[in-house]
Design a protein around this nucleic acid. Structure first.
Length: 511
RNA sequence: GGUCCGUUCGUCUAGGGGUUAGGACACGUCCCUUUCACGGAUGAAACACGGGUUCGAUUCCCGUACGGACUACCA
């Protein structure tokens, strides 16, 4: 195979949906594996739906997940411009060329007239049957058409679909798909505002940009027959790209495809990055803000609709590039499984080295005004990484490693604190204060001996020690925390614990 | 309604004419650990249905059911 050229062609009508990220990923993987080119094209031919900031959002999202285009808006390349609104004249030229070739025609029907017709006839379609009764260059006298065109009357250009033949598509994922041309409508190619529709723009651009494979969502399958007709009409059929229509990503629960609203509905991210809209209810957080590592998102997305066979679950981007193949993409829709996404994130956090995690934790810690050294952050990362799911968990669940204990687990305290423990804790505090070297393993052995010498069991004291340092029964090993906190802070918390213990006792007595 | 696409454990999926239908998430139990996790072990859990073809179909074919996408001068 010659080096493929593929494109990811989102529309800047809002934030980039996670399904769009997957489409970009599959395009990227295919290009990388085949030594091909991955192109970003912005399809902004609908001026009414344009959303400011959406284009930047798309590019920032691709950067975050690491799917960098070789060519495209913001990335340079020889086949530009890559923003369709900058290519308006090109489409006009080709649209008129298609009319001249006899595969398209001018139509003057107003949107209102067509709307009325649809109201009147249940299944109205603009096609070979109905166009003879409508206002277009196929029915109007030539001079009339000329007058209208010269008089700047609004018009659209429509594809002239000839009835009575079959259109075959060989989809790389679904195999042969056949359409009857008689069932196809005369799609609008060039709109009255001079902009092309998706159908025209995508064919012209894919041809001009030498696209070899079109990997896109399943929602495009029904219109692919029109696209084939367009390639034929232009005489480009011999270089027509191959098609691969991806299965949909479905809602976590219920029926239908995953939609923007599902994020708020289920309290989960469905976008890569957060988005701030004018209205608060239109704003949302993304995978990034939730605390996902981009590698985990990629791994999760890659397996949502594709699997190379075998039992491997964890794939680095390089693994994915090596293993990817279009043939192994599933045909059926894949349900968005957030629990699995969380699991991937957990695995990637576990596998990350402490220094890398520290760079992610630092901004989170600083947002809470915690000031700590890189070394300390490394240490916290090591202590916490096997018990967190999201990045913010490091500073939330690991709060006691950054600041004082704010809340004590009173239930456990009541259960474990005994009358007579006050002097034991005084002794323990002095013992710890005098202990060197202040290192986890040595301290553990020494404290356990201390407990034994007092005629107590580890189970009597260790839980209290934990409460002293962390306030809760959760968290890293006690002596690891002590070593991390340092002698001074450990002693301080031991003293505080005695007060808490006595208080708990009084509550029990008074109750 | 029409056109097209799809259907293996709850979920993501592997497999493919003869298998104890495999793995992962989630869930249950146990072990490790005087915490929480991690980790390990183990359990429950699936070929939508009906006809063919075949010695034999979960796998191939045809229907049915169910689900989905599309059906705009939106992409």
């Amino acid at each position: 195979m010659t080096r493929p050229r593929v494109r990811f062609a989102p529309s800047p009508t809002g934030a980039l949906h996670i399904g769009g990220v997957r489409t970009a990923l599959y395009n990227y993987l295919f290009a990388r594996q085949q030594g091909g080119t991955f192109i970003l094209r912005i399809e902004d031919t609908d001026q009414n739906r344009y959303v400011p900031g959406a284009e930047d959002y798309i590019i920032e999202s691709l950067r975050w997940v690491g799917l960098l285009p070789d060519e495209g808006v913001g990335f340079g390349g020889e086949c530009g411009p890559y923003r369709q609104s900058d290519r308006k004249e090109i489409y006009q030229k080709y649209a008129h060329e298609l009319v001249e070739r006899g595969h398209a025609y001018y139509a003057f029907d107003t949107p209102e007239a067509l709307e009325n017709r649809r109201q009147a006839e249940e299944n109205f379609t603009y096609n070979y049957l109905t166009r003879t009764g409508l206002s277009n260059s196929l029915t109007l006298p030539a001079e009339d058409v000329g007058t209208r065109l010269a008089g700047n009357e609004p018009f659209v250009i429509r594809l002239k679909v000839e009835p009575g033949h079959e259109v075959h598509i060989r989809d790389l994922i679904r195999g042969d798909v056949t359409f009857q041309s008689s069932e196809l409508d005369d799609k609008v190619l060039l709109k009255a505002d001079g902009m092309p529709t998706y159908h025209l723009a995508n064919i012209v651009d894919d041809h001009l940009m030498d696209i070899t494979h079109v990997i896109r969502g399943e929602e495009w399958l029904p219109s692919t027959a029109h696209h084939v007709l367009l390639y034929r009409g232009f005489g480009w059929e011999d270089t027509m790209p191959q098609f691969a229509h991806l299965p949909l990503i479905l809602k976590p629960v219920g029926n239908g495809k995953l939609s923007k609203r599902d994020g708020a509905k289920f309290g989960i991210p469905v976008f890569p990055l957060g988005w701030t809209a004018e209205k608060a209810e239109d704003s949302f957080t993304g995978f990034r803000e939730t605390g996902f590592l981009p590698e985990a998102v990629i791994n999760f997305l890659a397996l949502l609709g594709w699997h190379p066979g075998g039992d491997q679950e964890l794939f680095s981007i390089n693994d994915l590039v090596a293993a990817f193949s279009i043939e192994h993409i599933s045909k059926g829709g894949a349900r968005f499984d957030y629990e699995k996404a969380k699991w991937f994130n957990q695995k990637y956090i576990q596998a990350a080295d402490n220094a890398t995690l520290a760079t992610h934790i630092r901004p989170l810690a600083e947002a809470k005004s915690y000031r700590v050294s890189d070394e300390y952050l490394d240490c916290v990362a090591g202590l916490m990484k096997e018990r967190v799911t999201f990045l913010p968990d490091f500073v939330e669940q690991g709060d006691c490693l950054f600041g004082p204990v704010r809340e004590y687990d009173v239930e456990t305290l009541k259960k474990k604190w005994n009358p007579g423990f006050a002097p034991v804790f005084d002794d323990l505090t002095s013992f710890v204060a005098g202990f060197e070297p202040f290192q986890a393993a040595a301290l553990e052995e020494a404290v356990k001996n201390f407990i034994h010498d007092k005629g107590l069991k580890p189970g009597d004291i260790l839980p209290l020690l934990r409460i002293a340092l962390a306030g809760t029964m959760k968290g890293p090993a006690v002596f690891d925390m002590a070593a991390a906190l340092g002698k001074e802070e450990t002693v301080r918390r031991l003293i505080l614990l005695k007060e808490q213990g006595e208080k708990a006792l009084q509550n029990v007595v008074s109750a």
